[in-house]
Amino acid sequence: MRTSFAHGPKPAEFQRYIVLHDTEGTGDADSVINWWDASGHGVAAHFVVNRDGSVVQCVALDNIAHHAGYGDTGHNDFYGTCDESRDDKVGADQIGGWARDYGMNSYSVGIELVHVGGSGPYPEAQLDALDNLIAYIDAYYGSESTIIDHKAWRTGNSDTSPEFASFLANYQSHRRHAVQ
């Protein structure tokens, strides 16, 4: 974990969402994390899941990570989040009037999957690791967070790829990539 990626406290009562992302790059978790760190923007997810199923944690669950950024104007109300003082917003840059809401980071855990949209299937080991990670997050907080992908928060994101659509539906209804 890197303290430079933590942007304020996120006590359990504020946890509501798990936001899934694709890295849109072929590098492993370590290269993704090093790129985030080198950018100096303070952007990172709580976890990165490699294609081989290994998981790297970047930010403690009781801290805010800047993974969702600004969302569509009106989404704070839609998702029941608000832009409040727990988030230090260090490195956050507004992207336009259509995306003014900034509450999701304070109410969610971000998970990046190493994947590029259109590059083929998600490996079973990666999906199994995501199953286990979601179960871990549920157990940590003692409740089930709503699962969304990044493009639900901000229109126009590539996260997650079209190849993930059926898995996302299964995660949202069964908390696993495959219905059992």
Rank of each mutant, 00 (worst) to 15 (best):
A68D: 15
E124S: 14
H66L: 08
A169Q: 11
S119H: 12
W98M: 08
A165Q: 00
W36I: 05
Y140I: 07
S119N: 15
N132T: 09
S39N: 11
A60Y: 02
T155S: 12
S161M: 00
S39W: 07
H67K: 08
L130V: 07
G42L: 03
T73D: 09
G53M: 10
V32F: 10
T146G: 09
K89E: 13
H7D: 14
L127Q: 07
A152C: 04
T146E: 14
H67F: 13
D62M: 01
I95V: 15
T81G: 02
H41L: 15
F47T: 01
I95E: 13
L127E: 07
S39G: 10
D83F: 02
G69S: 10
T160F: 03
Q180S: 03
W35T: 13
L20W: 05
D149H: 05
G8F: 05
T73R: 08
Y171E: 03
I137W: 07
H21R: 04
Y17A: 00
S158T: 13
G25L: 11
R51M: 14
D83Q: 06
Q94C: 08
G156L: 13
S31I: 06
G8D: 03
F47W: 01
S145Q: 15
G117C: 12
Q126D: 09
H66E: 08
P9Y: 02
D101T: 05
D28A: 01
D159R: 03
N105T: 06
V59D: 03
L20D: 00
H41S: 15
G110D: 01
H150V: 12
A178V: 14
K151R: 13
V19E: 06
S145N: 14
H177W: 10
D149V: 09
C82A: 00
I95F: 03
S145R: 14
Y107C: 07
L130G: 13
A135M: 08
S31W: 02
A68K: 12
G42Q: 06
A92W: 06
D87P: 05
R16F: 11
A139Q: 08
V49N: 01
I148G: 05
D83A: 10
V179R: 10
R176G: 00
H174P: 06
H21K: 07
D77Y: 02
G103W: 08
V56K: 15
A125M: 07
